[in-house]
Design a protein around this nucleic acid. Structure first.
Lengths: 169, 169
DNA sequence: CTTGGAATGTCAACAAGGCTGACATAAAAT
DNA sequence: ATTTTATGTCAGCCTTGTTGACATTCCAAG
C-alpha cells in the first residue's frame, strides 16, 4: 500500500521524526507493553497459567465457536503451541471443544462459565489499566494512540483478523 | 492544536470509555506490539539471537558504560537471566565488560564495533516501522500516542529508568 | 467406490528465555 | 574483622515458542 495517501504531509512533520524521537517512541512502547501485561500476569500466576492462556481466553471469548485454525491465525503461533495451551484449558474445564457440525475435522471452541469468569477477571484488570491511561491522556490523545497503533500493525495479520470476524456472525 | 485542557475533562470522556472501546484498544496494543517486534525478530533469527539480546544491546547502546545492576532494573529480569544473554554477547565480541574504575565490583558495559553494527541494523529496522507509522498517523496523533503510552507504564519502573539516565552523565 | 491428497488437530521432543535457590568471589562499608 | 553489596555461575524448573510424526476427516479424481 502506498505509504503516502491520506496525508498531504507538509515539511513540518519531518521535524519530529528525528532518530531521537523515534527512539523515545520505541522505548515508550517497550515500557508501556510491560505495564499493559503486568496486571493480568499477576492474576495468571495465581492460577498457574501464562500469557498464552490469557490470549486464548480473550479471543475465544471474543468470537465464540471459533476454530483452532482461526485462533492460530489470529494469535500467530503454531498449532502445536496453541494446542498445549488449549489442552490445559480444556482439562481444567475453562474451555469446551465441540466437534464441528459441517466439517468434523474442525473443533469449535467455547468458554465455559468458569472460563468466562477467569476471562472477565483478566480483562477487567487490563481494562482498568487502559481506562486509567485513557482518562489521564484524554479523548484526543486516545484517537492518536489508536491511529499510530493501527499503522504499526502488520497489515496482513490484521486484515486476516478482521476477515475472520466478519465471516462468522 | 486545540486539545489544551489536558486536565479538567468534562463528562464527555465518559462516552468513549465503553468496554468495547477499551477492548479495541487492548487488541490494537496486542497486534501493534507484534508488528513492532517483527522486523528485528527476523534479523535476530539470522544471528541465532532472540529478543532478549536485542533489549540488552539497545540499552547498553543507549547508556554507554551502564552496569549490570542498572540493566537488570531497566529490563526487569533477574541477573541469572540477563547473565546468560550477556555471556553470549561478550563471547561473540559484541559487548565489552570492563571492571569499574571507582567501584571495582561493578562491570561497565560497552558495545564493541561489531555490537554497534548489529544494534544499528536492529534499531534501524524498528525505527523504519515506527517512522512509517508516525508518518501515516501525523504529528498530532503521535503526541497522543506518546501520552497514552506514558500513562500506561508502571510508574515506578519508568521513574527508576529516568533516574538512572540522569544520574550518569 | 476407492484411493490419494489436503486440511485439521494431537502427541513428542527440543530450545529460548523467563524464574528460584545456592554458592563463590571480590570489593566496599561498617 | 565482619558484614553487605555487586557480580557471576551452576543446577533445575516452567512457559511457550519451534519442528517432526501421525491420526482423522473430508473431498475430489479416477
Amino acid at each position: 500500500m502506498g505509504q503516502g495517501g491520506s496525508g498531504t504531509l507538509g515539511g513540518e512533520n519531518l521535524l519530529f521524526l528525528t532518530d531521537e524521537q523515534l527512539r523515545k517512541g520505541i522505548e515508550a512502547m517497550f515500557f508501556a507493553y510491560r505495564g499493559f501485561t503486568a496486571d493480568p500476569d499477576r492474576i495468571l500466576a495465581d492460577h498457574a497459567y501464562g500469557r498464552a492462556h490469557h490470549r486464548a481466553l480473550h479471543f475465544i471469548n471474543r468470537t465464540h465457536g471459533t476454530t483452532v485454525n482461526n485462533l492460530l491465525t489470529v494469535l500467530g503461533v503454531t498449532k502445536q503451541s496453541l494446542n498445549r495451551v488449549l489442552r490445559t484449558l480444556i482439562a481444567d474445564g475453562l474451555v469446551e471443544s465441540r466437534v464441528g457440525r459441517t466439517d468434523r475435522r474442525e473443533r469449535n471452541l467455547y468458554l465455559t462459565e468458569a472460563g468466562k469468569e477467569l476471562e472477565r477477571m483478566l480483562s477487567e484488570a487490563q481494562r482498568n489499566r487502559m481506562r486509567a491511561a485513557y482518562r489521564a491522556a484524554g479523548p484526543q490523545a486516545v484517537a492518536g494512540f489508536r491511529q499510530v497503533l493501527e499503522a504499526m500493525m502488520d497489515d496482513e495479520i490484521f486484515r486476516q483478523y478482521i476477515a475472520l470476524k466478519e465471516r462468522r456472525t
